[in-house]
Design a protein around this nucleic acid. Structure first.
Length: 464
RNA sequence: GGCCACGUGGCGGAGUGGUUACGCAGCGGACUGCAAAUCCGCGUACGGGGGUUCGAUUCCCUCCGUGGCCUCCA
């Protein structure tokens, strides 16, 4: 195919939100491809919508490792463990405790749950999983730089980013400043010089988590929402890096503001070369929301489905497309996985099928990749199918266990079934079809499905 | 209101300026005493209306519908 380069690998193309175009991927340094993805704010169980970026960028991570070598890729996915929502949660969940103690319990518990969820989903651990609270020093440093360069100012113990100080603010979300100011519908805090200015640092109330403040502010404070990602990506990937990912909802304001902070702090024209955003998820045709009662956590789904099935179900749609999360879709995904595992043959040297790699290299075209996998079910493709399943993070074990557990327990023991099968074989030998069919029907009523094989034997399995 | 996506056969879901992926379901056939399982085959779709073009599902305009963002939601 024309897409295959001299290395034997297809050209990797990724859609870049910054340019609104699919582009050939060229790393800043092929010796170390660097990717940052916005991880969760740990205040509550992750919901199925949170699982989408984690799975999508896990796939990209696997692909990058395949292309550049595992030791030449650095993937950073953060944990945001300082946030107003965490504080609010801590108060309601542990009302008797000291706030800071309550907060650490909330974050520790939520983070552990998140990790359990991801393991079930077959998601690889990123190379670094930094926490916001461990990077307060870098946040202060960034803020000091922004104040020094005139991109930020102090007001009433807050530090605010001055949006008008950055002439080309808004490139990522393509929102000209004029439009935003005209459409602003938010209450503007009185200490803001401009309605669009956003908080880099804010004072802590008594009892709240607080750190010594930058920019000469006397009272303790805590970071605003966006600064933590600028600090953590800087600390672990440098001033500029290759790929920055997250959900489409983060384009504005979160990523736009990250770009503003990092570019102004480093006097740089670019923060990350490629910005990738996954589409939203709906549940049974409706927007997922707590008020509609269709808010589903990963944890809840894992009670009924193996993580493997959730993973495939997520990848059935292209990552930039909206996805409608349905039980019907999950059933179909489970069936597909079972077919694949049934058809695959272990290989001593597992590797993904070239056609699958080519599909994935084209901006992670997972539906195309899945179609290619269906074509591997015949004899010639069985080993490639096994290699592809492994590459994509699918394991047979959990699915098999789930299938077995899902099969209703039978009221009859194997010996009885075998005896009745023997009885039926005898009846068939005598061409007594009435007796044969009666035995088959009786066993079926007990949940036992018979199969008459070509070689004359009869085998059975629990009815699905 | 502003900005931005999306709308493909019964369902899910790619893709393409002209030879119409793939899966599920359905139907037909093979196999079977009959079934089941399996295998083989079949279904000619691109929201409405204009336009560009020899030709549009694919490009442009418009309308309708769904969804997202517009300061802390992936």
């Amino acid at each position: 195919m024309s897409g295959i380069s001299g290395s034997g690998l297809p050209e990797l193309k990724l859609y870049n939100t910054l340019t609104r175009a699919k582009e050939g991927f060229v790393p800043l340094d092929a010796g170390l491809v660097r990717m940052y993805v916005c991880g969760p704010t740990v205040y509550d169980h992750a919901h199925i919508g949170n699982a989408r970026p984690v799975i999508v960028f896990d796939l990209l991570y696997r692909l990058l490792r395949h292309f550049y070598g595992a030791e030449h890729v650095k993937y950073v996915r953060n944990i945001t463990d300082v946030d107003d929502k965490i504080n609010a949660r801590a108060v309601t969940e542990f009302p008797g405790l000291d706030l800071n103690e309550a907060i650490s319990r909330v974050t520790a518990k939520t983070e552990a749950q998140f990790h359990d969820d991801l393991e079930a989903l077959g998601v690889l651990h990123p190379d670094v999983e930094p926490r916001a609270t461990e990077h307060i020093g870098q946040m202060r440093e960034l803020i000091e730089r922004l104040v020094a360069s005139g991109n930020a100012y102090v007001a009433e113990d807050h530090v605010l980013f001055s949006v008008p100080s950055m002439p080309d603010y808004g490139q990522l979300s393509r929102r000209p400043l004029d439009d935003m100011i005209a459409g602003a519908r938010v209450d503007v805090a009185p200490y803001k010089k401009d309605a669009m200015d956003f908080v880099l640092w804010k004072p802590s109330k008594p009892g709240e988590p607080g750190w010594s403040s930058p920019a000469g502010i006397a009272v303790p404070g805590r970071p605003g929402w966006h600064i933590e990602c600028s600090a953590m990506s800087w600390a672990h990937l440098g001033e500029t890096f290759d790929i920055h990912g997250g959900g489409i909802d983060l384009v504005f304001p979160h990523h736009e503001n990250e770009v503003a902070q990092s570019r102004c702090a480093f006097h740089s024209g670019i923060m990350a070369n490629v910005w990738m955003h996954n589409g939203f998820l709906q549940v049974e045709g409706e927007k997922m929301s707590k008020s509609l009662g269709n808010f589903i956590t990963i944890n809840q789904l894992l009670a009924d489905w193996p993580g493997q099935v959730l993973r495939l179900n997520m990848l059935k749609s292209h990552y930039r497309q909206p996805i409608d999360w349905t039980v019907k879709g999950l059933e179909e995904s489970a069936k597909t996985l079972e077919q694949w595992f049934d058809a695959s043959a272990p290989d001593a040297y597992p590797r993904p099928a070239p056609a699958v790699l080519e599909a994935l290299a084209d901006d992670l075209n997972t539906p195309k990749a899945i179609a290619e996998m269906h074509g591997l079910k015949d004899h010639a493709g069985k080993k490639a199918l096994a290699g592809t399943l492994a590459f994509l993070g699918f394991e047979a074990g959990p699915l098999r266990e789930w299938t077995a557990a899902r099969t209703p327990t039978l009221d009859v023991d194997a010996a009885t079934v075998e005896a009745r099968i023997a009885e039926r074989i005898e009846a068939r030998r005598n061409r007594d079809w009435a007796a044969s069919d009666r035995i088959r029907d009786e066993l079926l009523a007990l949940g036992v499905a018979l199969k008459d094989n070509k070689d004359g034997t009869t085998t059975w399995e629990p009815k699905r």
